[in-house]
Design a binder for these strands. Structure first.
Lengths: 345, 345
DNA sequence: CCCTTTAAAAAAAACGTTTTTATTGCTATT
DNA sequence: AATAGCAATAAAAACGTTTTTTTTAAAGGG
């Protein structure tokens, strides 16, 4: 179509240097045997003519395009975007570009996107926070294309992953609340049937209660069906409803900061003081949690590091480097801020 | 490399249907003349063999790959990610995938990224919120590749854009403050020399003052050099420093919500009540602004709509449809919440 | 009945690489 | 002196499409 903008090709270099095309290719890719004299000629020609290899043509031959596909559920999510940032920096440094697709929690959409990416010969996949959907991931794996799952433990020993220990981290949060003397600790979560992260945090909550000899009380486990609205709004609504019933615990653990925001807003709307009357601990440490009032005590996830780690792992696999460990769990930190205190007397 | 996963090609279809390759191609692309009988045969073969065209091969021939490159400064930004979401949805619906790259405010990085994308034969570019850097954008334009600038007014009549009227919108904010009787209105901004959006908002602030017969006072224009930290942190610091000096205005207009958060936090840290002592108005309406305390009055940008509009415009250009208007300004709305009130007596 | 036109289909070229195979010229070996 | 081996290079094939060109067969015109 825009012929007039035709880039110089390897052919032009070959003509300029007076050698064969294959020789130029060998020089560029440092393959095969080329004499030092000829190499010099080619290099000079490359210098003179401003040449950039046609990645599409190369991709057709080599079946690799130096691109990595990222599949996320929703790009509008402070957690997600930080992880992506970590991936992006590593990918770029190592010479890859990122194709990003969002599934918006639709499993058919996910499948379609993957097919498109397979058509495009991406070199690898990152699945960031999807469902526990072995099938679709397995399909990619079975084609022999490297992939990494981030923030999801896929129930398939072959699939590499990068995560935090969600169970342990949430238990840590509950332990922390207990250390202040809380005996009645509620939990705010969105639905957790479909993915390991939420499930494990929930299990961490349960284990925390158990180890601290507190009985589990389903009455104070608030489940936000977050498909309806954004998570903060949704939590605000469902918590507001909950508060009408009374039965208030002295502390809440939240599955994420975003949900904690909704909880806090609902509590404040009822005139409940934090942390004097109710303590709140979040999870993720997204940037605003330090700017709400009171600053939110939370479990910090190493978001950028997770992204960077995942991308390095993936690219090592793409480049067939030896990787020692394909199952990586990164550490979390409890950030003490001002939303947790002792229970009221 | 993974030969064993070889997809069926157009050749296989041709063999199955007993026709020539070119005929199959014609059927697939609905081009040329094929008899109804042969067409049926091909269609049947396509049905039988699960065929997906090789996009790379097609791209090599047609020089188009159904991908769009998005260049942003930083993906970790609530504004940015919402705009991207709008673009993503449209692109997907129209059969394109998105390549995303971040420049992190580095102009050389931007140039490098663009070169990579040009190598990859992307069909179009979106420049989302970069510098007023005609050169690099112009280079793309001159290669005949469609592009759209979002949230930046590029000083080049050829370059299509999608924006809001930043000057008018900020003036609206100042007018709103004045309607409460404020006479001393400060402004919080990051550095605005390098890009049109910030500059125009600043001009809107100035115009707002002028039309309301208020003298411009450089003492109460607070400039945050946001390159140092994240914007909220940066603003918090610079405002805190400012507050030590006294000379407090009764209201502030902010270049963005993110900066407003920093301002509000700094004010609260000094025990200053909002809006009783100082009013604050933000810009953007990112989701958290409704959850801070007090909920932030702000100018709402149609973020998703901007993204969707830009992508539709771009794809129309890519597909050589006729586009009537390549310079689009979308409307803003002032959201009245609780951070603005009358000045103290 | 031959020539021209036309519709339909097939064949071939092209896109720009990488990779495989072939050629060349030389040296060493027998 | 013929041949094997080797290094260096060139030539050709291949990747899977689209597009251009050629071929085929049938119809129409004089």
């Amino acid at each position: 179509m825009n012929k007039r903008f035709n880039n110089p090709s390897i052919k032009d270099i070959a003509r300029e240097a007076g050698v064969a095309i294959s020789t130029v290719s060998n020089v560029i890719n440092k393959k095969g045997i080329v004499g030092t004299e000829t190499e010099k000629k080619v290099l000079k020609a490359l210098e003179k003519i401003q040449y950039r290899p046609n990645i599409i043509a190369r991709g057709l031959r080599t079946r690799s395009t130096s691109t990595i596909a990222i599949i996320v559920q929703d790009i509008v999510n402070p957690y997600t975007s930080h992880v992506i940032k970590g991936m992006e920096e590593v990918a770029r440094k190592r010479g890859y570009t990122l194709l990003i697709a969002c599934t918006y929690y639709d499993i058919r959409e996910e499948k379609k996107q993957i097919d498109v990416f397979l058509d495009q010969f991406v070199d690898g996949f990152v699945f960031l926070g999807g469902y526990d959907n072995q099938g679709v991931v397995r399909r990619v794996y079975d084609r022999g294309i490297p992939l990494v799952s981030v923030d999801r433990e896929i129930d398939d020993p072959d699939i590499p992953y990068v995560l935090i220990d969600n169970l342990e981290a949430m238990k840590k949060a509950v332990d922390y609340l207990c250390s202040f003397g809380h005996k009645k600790i509620g939990y705010v979560t969105f639905r957790f049937e479909y993915q390991s992260t939420s499930r494990n945090r929930y299990l961490g909550y349960c284990k925390g209660l158990e180890e601290n000899h507190i009985d589990y009380d389903p009455e104070i486990v608030i489940i936000d069906d977050y498909m309806k609205l954004n998570e903060t709004e949704g939590t605000f609504e469902v918590v507001s409803k909950f508060l009408k019933k009374g039965a208030l615990p002295t502390a809440f653990a939240c599955i994420s900061d975003v949900n904690a925001f909704g909880l806090v807003k609902a509590l404040k709307a009822e005139g409940i003081k934090i942390p004097q009357e109710v303590s709140v601990i979040g999870f993720d440490n997204i940037s605003f949690s330090n700017f709400m009032e009171p600053p939110l005590t939370t479990i910090k996830q190493p978001k950028k590091l997770m992204g960077a780690t995942a991308m390095n792992l993936l690219l090592d696999m793409v480049e067939k480097k030896k990787v020692e460990n394909k199952n990586i769990k990164l550490p979390t930190v409890l950030l003490e801020r001002d939303s947790v205190g002792p229970p009221p007397k």
